[in-house]
């Protein structure tokens, strides 16, 4: 086969930079998280087509949320995905060309707010109870249910905060975690 030690022409370097690909083999891949908002026709078929596009073309989905908007004929999907700039550009173009998508925005390139909701049920004992409540207080969690053995917390915030909260709760015998996935919105300037 061919040697991989090609000397790149200036044009090849331009292409690699545009694709977000490493120019030297030891360059780290420039992948990052992206939050994409897609407005689609409010139908199951439209939703499935969007998700299907990701699987059919081998793109990643970290999380997806979907719900109606102020216009009942339009649904809003928040899709969290990972990729380098070439992959994300492809994702955006492939989404835009679907007949049922009305608007496609990559919020990552803009200023935006992002929230996730998490419900977390954890076992407590007499000894651990106060520590669990302390952690919850620090993260501004709210107790929404309590039984003799378990407590259920509600927590809102950016995904990293929820990651950190779950991390802190891990030693305490978590029974169940339900996360909503990221929802996001652009800030107005």
């Amino acid at each position: 086969m061919m040697a991989d030690t090609l000397v790149l022409t200036p044009q090849q370097i331009i292409r690699k930079k545009a694709a977000g690909e490493p120019i030297q083999p030891d360059d780290s891949e420039m992948t990052r998280k992206h939050t994409i908002v897609v407005l689609v026709e409010n139908s199951i078929g439209a939703f499935i087509r969007v998700i299907n596009m990701f699987s059919a073309r081998g793109f990643n989905i970290d999380s997806v949320t979907v719900g109606p908007t102020e216009d009942s004929s339009v649904s809003r999907m928040n899709i969290a995905t990972v990729g380098n700039s070439r992959i994300i550009a492809q994702v955006l173009r492939q989404l835009s060309r679907l007949v049922d998508t009305i608007e496609v925005t990559d919020l990552t390139t803009t200023d935006y707010v992002e929230r996730e909701l998490c419900l977390l049920k954890v076992c407590y004992t007499k000894d651990s109870r106060s520590e669990i409540l302390d952690v919850s207080d620090i993260f501004r969690g709210k107790v929404v249910d309590i039984t003799k053995k378990t407590m259920t917390f509600e927590l809102r915030g950016p995904s990293q905060k929820i990651d950190a909260f779950i991390d802190m709760m891990l030693p305490h015998n978590i029974v169940e975690v339900a996360r909503s996935g990221r929802v996001a919105m652009q800030r107005d300037i």
Binding site: A19, A89, R93, Q94, S96, R97
Partner: peptide
């Protein structure tokens, strides 16, 4: 087709 642009070659 916008999805063909820069798909394989920039």
């Amino acid at each position: 087709d916008q999805s063909c642009i820069s798909k394989n070659v920039f």
